[in-house]
Design a protein around this nucleic acid. Structure first.
Length: 955
RNA sequence: GGCCGAGUGGCGGAAUGGCAGACGCACAGGACUUAAAAUCCUGUUUGGGGUUACCCAAGUGCGGGUUCGAGUCCCGCCUCGGCUACCA
């Protein structure tokens, strides 16, 4: 037999690990703890993708390595199993979504186990488990029970919310209504993205170009009662605490940009006549800036209060509540038409039309508070109702959007910032209103502020506005509250009850389901179809589910369900204590295991999942249920794995090759002839459609930087790796790789492809390459010529020679260091060098082979266990100590040092490793070749770097 | 448009500012074999020179700069990829 046969070996060891519970993690760590987490997968019907094992193998290697170094490792896996595909399947087949979901989970579990990942499967969970979502619901009730105390900067129980006495006097129901306005989970009538085809409302981030992310269906905006989570209350802390975590800078920046904190000022523009303006101003001076703007002003938000003198018009969002009031009779028809169009216009249409600004004059004016000038008020959809105050002052000279709008509608442009001599700005054009400049400079046309630099001016004018009661400093965030409800069946039901009156009508009073009555399980339905109305499928539930009676009071259950994000917001906590019936997680266990020390997952979750989870974590922290301010101490993103590199050529309808340099893409991304219009004018005929053809690598050759057809070198061929997709037919299935090469080869290849975080193309030849390495490693230890399994005759109990010791200890050192840095590809290269060396050795000491097997084991655990057993061990190596290296053997006694003349390599000398700089220089001068080249030259300078090089600078 | 990342042999990639191309793939030649597969050995950046050992020159997307010395640091571009998009 004994060739290396992963197909027999791998199931054997997987069964062994399972039987011996090799990777069971104790409830509490027995040594230094390490919590390593993968982003758990959505169990789709397609099964695992080769992208999954990339991150999973990386974390598995870290876990196996650290276990051997004595750490108590928590390494769990689960499934993010709510979601639309299962529900769509349920609708098609009229089976409960749970059925298909569990089938998919079983397949994912099988595939994950097939990879030999060292999870503690006793901790497995799915977000759809009733025992799990019971606590998701419990956390929702906690959000419902929490308000954000701005002064303390943290969430507190709603019972501690100060209630104004005039409210308290009106009794219990008024108090509850008052409290409802401050809860972190609240209801709101929001304009939502209603997708008729999916029968659900989507979050903004699930809508791409006006189409649903899933299915690409059209989306409309309609108002609907929705559950919202007040994530904006935590915006400041979510941004600030990014400092506490070791995450990629790019991800931190993405989150900070998404939160989008900006500091500026709110300013009130007077809506009365110029004659009343001075009265208004003096009244404001007396009474100060009101917390809520009255009807006599239009309140705007700006980050550039220094440009107030350049405000030549104002714009309010089409949805702004003042639109009706500000519209004059003559403008009414135009305004109404514009508002209707804006309401029905999808985001896609807005995007496409973004080149040209649109808007309508209301007929009204407001007065610029700094100079008393009346300026016109317009409505336009480039101003968003949901940001700031929904109204802006337009400063066309210093804001590109305002500039485009002003040019379009011939509005005045007044420059108030002198850029001085900034590179690309034409100062004369700016002053003439022909160019826009958004940068900083020195104030002009700003009365007594002329000459001030932008930054001090901002501070000065803010003080002035505050003193005069017409403005105040303000902070805004791009982040919006989180639209948290979905009109679907397959999600966590909200643990919320709507109180009903005697006639069965809602009273508007809410209560959370009491904790002892959780979970609220999903009811069985006759069918799972959405009805095309924005009313959730749960409204079709049987009455005994829908209308519970508690303490004699009849209620209607909330019929919305939570979005898929909910379950992934806290799963990392449940893994610590997955079976706890009393609490989401035991506090003592939480305290010792948290935070997650290493979290690995795709960069596509850089914003949403990671931001939502941090938000929930902070609420749990404020309420005393977790002990760390941040959940994920360190984050790493694995890079995407692309398909095999493909050569693509293009042909026209008659089969003539078209050079890739002459190919462009049309609006749909289809290849067409590039239109050459030397004058830059628009083409009159539509471009010729082309066919993309896969070209055999044999027919292609490299010419300079490009690839061309071998037969027809004038034809350029595209060479690139594409995203794996069903439609392209370049998806690699892990089942096939395991079948053909083995799980160890798949693991090893995914790590050997390149740095973990980089995007990399798949290559089947590469997989067989690492398989070749495992074959060689096997033959280094096993005698494969024999029928029975036996060690290679080269293996004995001798002590390693000096040369062997150097290889052994250098390899241990390098692999250990690379693992600590998560540089897996170079660690594998070092092990390959080890095998290349030792297969040439006729005497292979057992101790050396054992050290190698231990080094290999985190990467290729099955073959390593098998070899470990062959080397005479009866126990799994999973907890064997990591081999140490001896410093002395990692240093060579004699080293080769390059000698340069004027930075060019001219010779190499061999010297003792501890050679002094003086001796090194002497040895370099003594080298025959160097001496010859130095003869007759004057040495200007000698650079001697001990152990590295010698460089002579000569004239 | 903005932000982030990446450009090194035929390919994936390696290189604390110090010998560019480790390791693997692919390819070529050789050994073993009746033969093939498998395996083992040797070679492979480009151009030029030499009988061999070898020597010379150029070379990490492009153009500058810092330095004794730059794939690596700085400035300015180009190309590709990802994310994002009127946030006042």
């Amino acid at each position: 037999m004994p060739r290396y046969q992963p197909r027999q070996l791998e199931p054997k060891w997987q069964a062994y690990w399972e039987k011996h519970e090799t990777f069971r993690t104790p409830d509490l760590p027995t040594g230094p703890k390490l919590y390593v987490l993968d982003m758990f997968p959505y169990p789709s019907g397609d099964g695992l993708h080769v992208g999954h094992p990339e991150g999973y193998t990386a974390t598995d290697i870290v876990c196996r390595f650290e276990r051997m170094r004595g750490k108590s490792v928590l390494h769990p896996m689960g499934f993010d199993a709510f979601g639309l595909p299962a529900e769509e399947h349920a609708i098609r087949t009229n089976t409960p979504p749970r059925v298909q979901t569990e089938r998919n989970i079983a397949n994912f579990r099988r595939q994950l186990k097939m990879l030999g990942l060292s999870y503690d499967w006793n901790r497995e969970l799915a977000t759809t488990d009733v025992d799990y979502f019971r606590w998701t619901q419990w956390i929702f009730t906690l959000l419902f029970d929490t308000w954000f105390d701005d002064e303390a900067g943290r969430g507190r129980p709603i019972a501690e919310l100060p209630v104004p006495s005039e409210v308290a006097e009106q009794g219990e129901r008024e108090i509850r209504k008052y409290q409802d306005q401050f809860r972190l989970a609240y209801q709101s009538d929001a304009l939502v993205n209603w997708c008729p085809a999916l029968g659900t409302v989507l979050a903004n981030e699930e809508v791409i170009d006006g189409k649903s992310e899933r299915g690409n269906h059209p989306v409309q905006r309609i108002p609907l009662r929705q559950w919202m989570l007040r994530i904006t209350a935590y915006a400041d802390r979510l941004e600030r605490d990014l400092e506490l975590v070791r995450w990629p800078d790019s991800t931190k920046k993405l989150q900070a940009d998404w939160i989008g904190r900006s500091v500026g000022a709110e300013v009130d523009f007077f809506l009365g006549s110029p004659e009343q303006f001075s009265d208004w101003k003096s009244e404001r001076s007396r009474r100060g800036f009101p917390a809520q703007p009255g009807a006599d002003v239009l309140r705007i938000y700006t980050t550039r209060p220094d440009t107030l003198f350049g405000a030549t018009y104002m714009v309010i969002a089409p949805e702004h509540p003042f639109v009706d009031r500000l519209t004059t009779a003559g403008q009414r028809a135009a305004i109404t038409a514009y508002r209707e169009r804006a309401a029905t216009r999808s985001d896609r249409e807005r995007t496409e039309a973004s080149k040209a600004k649109t808007g309508v004059f209301t007929g009204s004016h407001a007065i610029n508070p700094v100079n008393g000038q009346p300026i016109p008020i317009w409505i336009a959809d480039y101003v968003l109702i949901s940001y700031g105050t929904g109204a802006i002052m337009a400063v066309p000279a210093h804001d590109t959007r305002d500039f485009e709008f002003a040019v379009e509608f011939h509005l005045p442009i007044v420059a108030v910032v002198d850029p001085g001599s900034v590179g690309e700005v034409d100062r004369a054009k700016l002053l003439a209103g022909e160019q826009c400049y958004a940068g900083v400079g020195r104030a002009i046309h700003s009365n007594e502020f002329d000459g001030m630099e932008t930054e001090p001016f901002k501070i000065r004018i803010a003080e002035r506005l505050a003193a005069e009661g017409i403005g105040r400093r303000a902070v805004n965030y791009k982040l919006r509250d989180w639209l948290f409800s979905r009109q679907r069946f397959w999600g966590e039901p909200f643990p919320i009850l709507h109180e009903l009156d005697g006639a069965g009508q809602p009273t508007g009073m809410l209560r959370a389901v009491p904790p002892d009555q959780l979970p609220v399980d999903l009811p069985r339905l006759d069918d799972y179809k959405p009805h095309g109305r924005p009313e959730p499928p749960l409204a079709k539930a049987p009455d005994d589910w829908l209308y519970p009676v508690i303490d004699g009071q009849r209620y209607r259950r909330e019929t919305n369900t939570m979005p898929q994000w909910a379950g992934s917001c806290w799963y990392y906590l449940r893994f610590i204590d997955p079976k706890n019936p009393q609490a989401p997680v035991d506090r003592e266990k939480e305290r010792v295991w948290m935070p997650v020390d290493l979290y690995v997952g795709g960069a596509e979750h850089a914003v949403l999942h990671l931001l939502y989870a941090r938000f929930w974590h902070k609420v749990l922290y404020d309420r005393g249920f977790v002990s760390t301010p941040e959940p994920f101490a360190r984050l790493v993103h694995q890079g995407m794995i692309l398909g095999e590199i493909e050569f693509t050529g293009y042909q026209d309808a008659s089969g003539n090759w078209i050079s890739a340099s002459d190919v462009a893409e049309d609006a749909n991304g289809a290849p067409v002839m590039r239109i050459k219009t030397p004058t830059g004018g628009a083409a009159t005929t539509p471009p010729t459609a082309l066919q993309a053809r896969k070209v055999d690598p044999e027919q292609v050759e490299k010419k300079g930087d490009l690839f061309v057809l071998r037969e027809l070198p004038s034809i350029r061929i595209e060479s690139r790796a594409n995203k794996m997709s069903k439609s392209r037919g370049n998806v690699v299935n892990p089942d096939e790789i395991v079948r053909d090469f083995g799980a160890d080869s798949l693991r090893l290849y995914e790590m050997f492809m390149g740095p973990l975080e980089q995007v990399k193309p798949w290559s089947m030849a590469g997989v067989s390459g690492v398989r070749g390495f495992l074959d060689r490693a096997w033959r280094m230890i096993v005698d494969e010529k024999l029928e029975a399994i036996a060690l290679s005759p080269a293996i004995d109990d001798s002590l390693p020679s000096d040369a062997q010791n150097r290889v052994i200890h250098k390899t241990i050192q390098a692999v250990t260091r690379d693992l600590e840095r998560m540089e897996f590809n170079t660690a594998i290269a070092r092990m390959m060098e080890f095998v290349n060396f030792f297969t040439k050795e006729s005497q292979r000491p057992r101790s050396a082979m054992e050290a190698f097997v231990l080094l290999l084991s985190p990467f290729a655990p099955h073959i390593a266990e098998e070899l470990w057993q062959l080397l005479g061990h009866s126990q799994s190596l999973a907890h064997a100590p990591w081999p140490p290296f001896e410093e002395a053997y990692t240093r060579d006694t004699s080293i080769e040092v390059p000698v340069q003349i004027c930075g060019k390599l001219r010779s190499k000398i061999s010297v003792p490793a501890d050679c002094s700089p003086d001796d090194l220089e002497t040895a370099a001068r003594a080298d025959a070749r160097i001496a010859e080249l130095l003869a007759g030259k004057q040495i200007v300078k000698s650079i001697v770097v001990p152990g590295r090089l010698v460089n002579f600078v000569v004239k």
